[in-house]
């Protein structure tokens, strides 16, 4: 890797000499610090991470451009027929369309169902992580900067939520408010924001003691400004690294809840629900209904975890 990059720069230098005109210097975009650039470089160097990044990229592209990729719309009841139910992978339908990954018990094309399922899983994972992150960061920051009674109260709440098993809280909540993509997201946010709040608070506390924060107060900046302009950007790394890993666990949680029948509705199947719906037929040899969504889920979570994990190592301050 290093060899090729050296060669490349060598060639560039030669090329520049040949043309004889200076290359205009690119202005670094805001926030593009040398540390960050070095970090991205470290991140890209690992082949396993490369694979994961490619897989994630594909999944996201598929999720965004779904109607072009999926042979069928699994949400549209008229687009498939029960006549085609539980066809083996590769077989043809009554009307002659080919089902690459077979069909489920309702005659839905598995490939399309998986694509749509990936989209639901990703949506739930990203939105719930994003919301939980925003709430957690704000709570952690406020606790660290305000201190005193406010901090004590907020952190008690955090301890309270973290004291229960995640899945239990989510199950109970969904049993009460019912199924639905929005409700699953809500449940995941409720169980996950506390994680971020705790990490953010400790990061912000250690940042708060640094002299530039004292300088900010000394210059008469208000607490909100010091919190969001000074402390937050410098303590976000820790929380962001955890968030990348938490996307995967949010997706797992959603899959688990859907598998247990309290997650997304049957009309909008996610990967977890697809696995669950094929579960009954597993014994009768119709493995594909559960297997392929399961593999898709595995690839998604594995890639997310790998990237998140490498991000953690790359962001490790002791290495930079």
């Amino acid at each position: 890797m290093t060899d090729t990059s050296q060669q490349l720069t060598g060639q560039q230098a030669l090329g520049q000499q040949g043309v004889g005109e200076p290359v205009p210097q690119r202005r670094a975009p805001i926030g593009d610090t040398p540390q960050r650039r070095a970090m991205l470089k470290r991140l890209k160097r690992r082949p396993s991470v490369k694979g994961s990044l490619i897989a994630l990229f594909l999944i996201v592209v598929i999720g965004l451009t779904l109607p072009f990729f999926a042979p069928q719309n699994p949400y549209d009841l008229t687009s498939f027929s029960v006549m085609d139910n539980r066809l083996a992978p590769g077989s043809e339908s009554f009307e002659g369309t080919r089902f690459l990954l077979g069909t489920d018990q309702q005659g839905r094309d598995m490939l399309s169902a998986i694509f749509y399922g990936l989209r639901v899983s990703l949506l739930v994972g990203l939105v719930s992580t994003g919301l939980a992150l925003v709430i957690g960061v704000c709570v952690g920051l406020v606790a660290a900067v305000m201190g005193g009674r406010i901090e004590a109260m907020l952190m008690r709440l955090v301890d309270f939520i973290l004291g229960f098993p995640t899945i239990l809280v989510a199950l109970v909540m969904l049993a009460m408010i019912g199924r639905g993509v929005d409700k699953v997201i809500l449940a995941i946010v409720v169980v996950q924001w506390a994680n971020y709040a705790r990490i953010m608070r400790s990061a912000a506390l250690s940042e708060r003691r640094r002299e530039y924060v004292e300088a900010a107060f000394n210059l008469g900046y208000g607490k909100p400004r010091v919190m969001f302009r000074h402390i937050m950007p410098n303590s976000l790394n820790a929380v962001l690294v955890v968030a990348t890993v938490q996307i995967a666990s949010a997706i797992t949680l959603e899959a688990t809840l859907s598998f247990l029948g309290v997650g997304v509705p049957v009309t909008q199947p996610s990967l977890g629900l697809l696995v669950a719906s094929g579960f009954d037929y597993l014994m009768s040899g119709d493995y594909w209904i559960s297997l392929y969504p399961g593999i898709a889920l595995l690839v998604l979570i594995f890639s997310l975890n790998l990237v998140g994990d490498r991000l953690r190592t790359a962001l490790d301050p002791k290495r930079s």
Partner: peptide, 9 residues
């Protein structure tokens, strides 16, 4: 401490 007294970002 001049290394801690400026916001690094």
């Amino acid at each position: 401490d001049p290394y801690a007294s400026l916001n690094p970002r």
